[in-house]
Nucleic acid binder design. Structure first.
Lengths: 224, 224
DNA sequence: AGAAGAACGAACTAACCAGTACGTTCTTCC
DNA sequence: GGAAGAACGTACTGGTTAGTTCGTTCTTCT
């Protein structure tokens, strides 16, 4: 499914080998997400697999390459989510709300993704930059958004001074925050942002925010 | 200024000692923010100070306690910012916008703070929880917000189903995102979120977002 | 069946790194 | 001026951890 896997598959690997690699990737994803790059222990990953450390180096050559494979896999997953939203038949407002909700749902159900993105940012995205696949495939998320916004502006319901990247940023910011800052927020304010009881209201809130921001006039009440 | 420092000061330390400790804290803040907790090297911190590793352990006893002191210091700084906003004479909308802008400005000018918060979240806030000072002092940020929102609701300009913590979350989410996800965003979309040219428009955007969301009716266009 | 190579395992190594032992030099106060 | 303790420096250690060595066992194909 992901590049790294296919390589070995092509050169005649067994189904068992593929399962081993996926096993390693699953465990590594959890370990890196939970402890950061430097904090993750290859021995610990090995121990939680049904394989040994030898196999990790056999298939992935180094801790860094293993980490990169993990990154590529989680980024591949979110692409699939974005592609899954059928936008065309919705009004601009509804479409925006749907996209926001889908992003919110993905992030809250894939905490490892957000944790890995945080980790990657701490390291100034130096690993991410090494993966042409991730860079190439993920820009396309924006084109969908561009279409929707353009339609909304043309219909006169959206303000025209906010572009697709801005909207993507607003949606991501809110959806990421729930997962990324969950623990400090809970520690200080004693509210678990991923509490299922809050989910519906927060899903609605992210939609409200995006739609309200886009439909607001430039000269908003309270602007300084 | 921070607890750890005063302790030693009280028991008769020289001005030089205080400078040494601050020197260590400055360097440690940068090192932890840049590399994470596990990734940070005590030797590296020592090398960039005008002191030696011995002194780090002399004043801070362990890597973990040093990290905690760093955390406490950066959290003390943001408290000062929040206290600095004079709210009373502004309208609810203006007050919200001011608070949002102040948070945005603080976060964009104190990247180490956001990085440390990210790191702390990766470790499930286990260090933060050990600091009663941080936990106690930071909840108060919410009471200010509560007053403003209550006023807005009473005046009939704000919707009543969004509470202070929600608003704090919206503001933080946007302001944090710029710094926290700067590098992956730049790598994928080639837009530096901290580019000075974007600052004014983003500062306005965060105000627009908060005000628009709070002033929107519940039955928003586009709600499903 | 048996050869070739893929898949696997246990035990090791070299480097690295948090923390320390042990000593010296300042500072303060009488 | 000298005693007491704070402030400092060098050189080390012990545990940890990424990566390896050298071997065995499966799988596949003819």
């Amino acid at each position: 499914m992901v590049g790294e896997l296919r390589e070995v598959q092509d050169s005649g690997s067994t189904a068992r080998a593929v399962r081993t690699m996926e096993d390693i990737l699953d465990v590594a994803t959890a370990e890196f997400a939970a402890n950061g790059y430097a904090g993750a222990r290859v021995d610990e990953i090995a121990a939680r697999t049904r394989t040994t450390k030898r196999m990790i180096y056999y298939y992935f050559t180094s801790k860094e390459r293993l980490y990169l494979s993990v990154l590529e896999r989680v980024y591949a997953q979110i692409r699939d989510v974005e592609r899954g939203v059928r936008i065309e038949e919705l009004s601009p407002c509804e479409a925006l709300r749907k996209l926001a909700e889908a992003t919110y749902d993905h992030h809250t159900t894939h905490q490892e993704f957000i944790q890995l993105v945080s980790i990657e940012n701490i390291h100034r995205a130096e690993h991410l930059r090494q993966s042409p696949t991730i860079l190439r495939e993920n820009v396309t998320a924006i084109t969908v958004l561009e279409g929707v916004i353009e339609r909304g502006v043309r219909e006169g319901v959206f303000r025209s001074d906010i572009d697709a990247l801005d909207v993507h940023m607003i949606i991501s910011a809110f959806a990421c925050f729930h997962v990324a800052n969950r623990h400090t927020f809970a520690a200080i304010f004693d509210r678990d942002l991923l509490n299922p009881a809050l989910q519906d209201s927060h899903r609605r809130l992210i939609g409200d925010m995006v739609v309200a921001t886009l439909t607001a006039q430039d000269g908003n009440p309270g602007s300084s």
